[in-house]
Nucleic acid binder design. Structure first.
Lengths: 324, 324
DNA sequence: TTGTAAGCGTTATCAG
DNA sequence: CTGATAACGCTTACAA
């Protein structure tokens, strides 16, 4: 493949002039510019981006760390990031971690190695202090309800949203409430669990540890929940469910067991993804896609000012439908 | 950041020796190797991957072109690609195109610019001959039922699968069959349309153009289908639907209109994604994730032998459930 | 407005 | 086993 030197030689100019044309610098005479463009055309030249990266010390690429792509929540988040990234002409490099810390570190190592200019963590499993080691190498954005000062973050107020759901159920006369959470190890789950325990105390209801069901992530996990429900001697009258997928799975599986929602039990979930609308599930909207675009904007902001570390909080909204 | 020269100087060896250590080359004395490793450790050195890329003329990255990330089909495909890519230590660079040809070309230009070593097209809108211009620059894999020889491809037999669905409906006594397709412009839709018309002729049924509904991609499109159905004077007794999402949306919306499946009309769809299982939708399984991993394997094969252009066809499977 | 030349940080060849 | 040194292809002072 031809290189910039060859173009220069054939066009009868210097390499810097070619470079200037390539980068739309001012101060290039039209004559030379034309000659260069013509030669580029003729040789079907395309510049080697790796050389540009090496020379500039940056790549206009950002790493996106997420546990799995194949889940509506992360797909939507990623789509938000991708759309915004395209507007800014930055490419996305994917790091699918399956919640594996080593894979997350891999992304950070690629940051050190200058493959990417920064990282957006859609989910995080590595310890915070490990992250700090990489602070300063490049912008790092967290999509979590973070309570630290070092990095910008984008999220909703998870505990508040959770309490909103709980309060709504209570306002509808429910006191025997079970909850379905995602990964119990996650900080979010810990906070939600605490909020649940507290709320039960406030309304004078017994706290039943067995009414906290973990690992509820996908639609098929809804079946698991119903299976457990059927086993229980004492039944809850309502479920607060971590995401629409699981709620949808529960409702479908309930029907398979001659149970109806909300008559046998009420369900409220999170996300307001399309499935909840079509199934009439009452849900608390999480603006997933905007979370993604905001995360990317925070990345841009931090790349302009390394000290930028705002905590962006997006609002949630309750959609009353027919499952409560 | 320290570079290889500095490491060499401090460790008292040459840069080549450092490079050898970095790349696990044999023929480095343990003494020097240790010295180098110690210095690397001490300076917290990390090698600049852009320099490596420039020097080697490749990046171990592959571009993935897809219209949208936020759809179960493409998420699953991407996940398959990502898992396989990880095994081979290659990074994925995302190109979300929204079926826009320019965006697809962008990926090909990045290939020319050596940002990526090759491209996997999860969907394609650009003309074939345009693709040919880039042939030879790097491995290119198509995830489509391709009938050309230039590139390897991975897919299912779309027309066969479509006929399988049609035949199944006919075998269950249905003759008044409507179909829901995705993007009507796509080659797949064209082929399916033709197959539909032909089948109607074979069973001696009238071909009704208005019973072909396009733009059925997402769960919310199911509502649109039901809206149309309600308008029709003459009703079909069955629908063959392009994907599970739409089928799910249709069934939910049918229920909202006091219609029941399969009593009022039967539904069979494609994918066998989790939602179809939980809703009891009869479906033709498309091994989406394997399609992704196979695509990546084809990429690897082609990177070893540029002439490699096998057409990989994965089997589909009918899952009889309760919607027909 | 233009050109020269010094980086950017590796790898790879070749001689020892 | 080891080390010079020439690529790789571009950007960017600096000088003219």
């Amino acid at each position: 493949m031809a290189n910039i030197r060859e173009i220069a030689r054939l066009a009868g100019v210097s390499v810097s002039t070619v470079s200037r044309v390539l980068n739309n610098h001012p101060y290039v005479s039209t004559a030379k510019k034309d000659a260069v463009l013509k030669t580029i055309e003729k040789l079907d030249y395309s510049r080697n981006i790796n050389a540009v990266h090496l020379s500039q010390g940056k790549t206009n690429m950002v790493g996106v760390v997420l546990p799995t792509i194949n889940h509506p929540y992360f797909s939507a988040l990623l789509e938000g990031i991708a759309e915004e990234a395209m507007k800014h002409n930055v490419q996305l490099v994917l790091f699918q971690t399956d919640y594996n810390q080593d894979k997350e570190l891999e992304a950070l190592e690629q940051l050190r190695g200058h493959l990417i200019d920064g990282v957006i963590f859609c989910s995080r499993a590595v310890q915070f202090d490990l992250l700090l080691n990489y602070k300063g190498i490049g912008p790092t954005v967290l999509c979590e309800d973070a309570d630290q000062q070092e990095f910008p973050s984008v999220s909703i107020k998870h505990v508040e949203a959770f309490n909103l759901g709980l309060d709504y159920l209570v306002s509808k006369g429910h006191e025997k409430i079970a909850i379905c959470l995602g990964r119990l190890e996650g900080t979010n789950s810990q906070k939600r669990k605490a909020a649940y325990e507290k709320k039960m105390k406030v309304i004078g209801e017994k706290f039943r540890r067995e009414w906290i069901i973990g690992q509820c992530l996908m639609i098929e996990d809804g079946k698991k929940v119903i299976d457990e429900y059927l086993e229980w001697d004492e039944k809850p009258t309502a479920f607060l469910v971590g995401n629409d997928q699981v709620a949808a799975g529960m409702i479908a599986e309930a029907k398979n067991n001659e149970l109806t929602v909300p008559e046998d039990f009420a369900v409220i979930s999170f996300d307001n993804h399309p499935i909840s609308k079509i199934l009439g599930i009452t849900t608390i909207e999480i603006p997933t896609k905007q979370l993604g675009s905001s995360a990317f904007m925070a990345y841009i902001d931090q790349s302009k000012d390394i000290e930028y570390s705002d905590k962006i909080v997006l609002p949630v909204k309750l959609w009353e439908r027919k499952s409560v």
